[in-house]
């Protein structure tokens, strides 16, 4: 297990290094300048500005400089906000995105597991049919369309929730639902498959033969075993939540990293784009790592066969 974790951490570092390098290189290839009124500046002024921001040095030097600063937690200054440190911005906005993400994950996971269990137990019945239909709809409809529908009906038409913002608990409801239903649908689908499979296992028949009540069989034997593989979907789920929150933050004007990122792209704010991209990548890579390790801990069969085979 120790060796496995070490190997995974090694891959993680390599991947992350590649991300940093690629982000840096693509930023250097970007068209346009980061200066607002570049066409009104004289070449001397432009050179002065470039010198001030360190953009006049050869690219390898800039690269090493960037790496060195990064090791010290310094992601450079935002071009757009008068060289305020990017790290500061991200630290300030990250908790908000995290809050949105975690709330959506909890909402989606809990509801998804419950729906999946119900659907699995009543397989082929009306309840199952309803759940399956619902999951296909929620997996297919893009979160931003869903958000627009919710916003239109619940905020504009019946004015139950605020249209935009992120302060009182009421403002959390619609964004969390918008992201959460996608999570819910994927998890419900997965949970249903697991339930159906577990309920067909021999040990369920044994439990029934012992005379256990249906509730006890389902609660003690079926659900517990069906829950294990749920851990594996949580990794890919994170990616979906990150993508979702990017648009949802924009739609509901939530001051998280997502809306900041879109803002930075539009204004060619290189350091901000790089910082945010790296944060996203780090988040994604670390989550996958944790999920893989967690899975090894929960399910001993995987450890025996020497790590997940993918």
């Amino acid at each position: 297990m120790g060796r496995y974790i070490l190997k995974r951490v090694g891959y993680m570092l390599v991947t992350f290094y590649v991300v940093i390098t690629l982000t840096f290189l693509s930023m250097k290839m970007l068209p346009g300048t980061p200066f607002k009124f570049a066409n009104r500046l004289t070449p001397e002024q432009l050179n002065q500005l470039k010198h001030y921001y360190g953009l006049d040095q050869p690219i390898p030097v800039q690269y090493l400089h960037y790496l060195w600063n990064m090791l010290h937690g310094d992601l450079g200054g935002s071009f757009q906000y008068g060289m305020q440190p990017v790290t500061e911005f991200l630290l300030q906005r990250f908790p908000i995105s995290m809050e949105l993400g975690i709330e959506s994950m909890i909402f989606g996971t809990v509801l998804g597991i419950v729906l999946g269990i119900i659907s699995g137990i009543y397989r082929g019945k009306f309840l199952d049919w309803g759940t399956v239909t619902l999951t296909v709809l929620f997996i297919s409809i893009p979160s931003f369309i869903f958000a627009a529908i919710l916003q239109y009906f619940f905020s504009v038409k019946i004015q139950l929730f605020p249209v935009i913002g992120w302060d009182s608990p009421m403002t959390h409801v619609l964004p969390v639902i918008s992201i959460g239903v996608g999570v819910m649908a994927s998890i419900a689908r997965f949970m249903r498959t697991e339930m159906v499979e577990v309920l067909n296992q021999d040990y369920i028949v044994t439990a029934q033969a012992k005379g256990l009540s249906t509730v006890a069989v389902i609660y003690k034997h079926a659900i517990r075993n069906a829950m294990i593989p749920i851990v594996t979907v949580i990794g890919p789920m994170t990616a979906a939540v990150v993508t979702g929150s990017l648009v949802i933050e924009n739609i509901f004007a939530i001051p998280g990293i997502g809306s900041q990122f879109i803002d930075a792209i539009v204004t060619n704010d290189y350091p901000m784009i790089m910082g945010t991209t790296e944060l996203y990548a780090a988040l994604f890579i670390v989550t996958i790592l944790i999920v893989d390790i967690l899975y090894g801990v929960i399910d001993p069969r995987i450890r025996v066969s020497g790590g997940k085979s993918s």
Binding site: Y11, L22, S26
Partner: peptide, 21 residues
């Protein structure tokens, strides 16, 4: 492949789109 897949596709796509128009 592992390294390519380790980077979220959203990040790939945004980087590529930034470089090209």
């Amino acid at each position: 492949l592992e390294i390519i897949a380790g980077i979220p596709s959203l990040v790939w796509i945004i980087l590529l789109i930034l470089i090209m128009q």
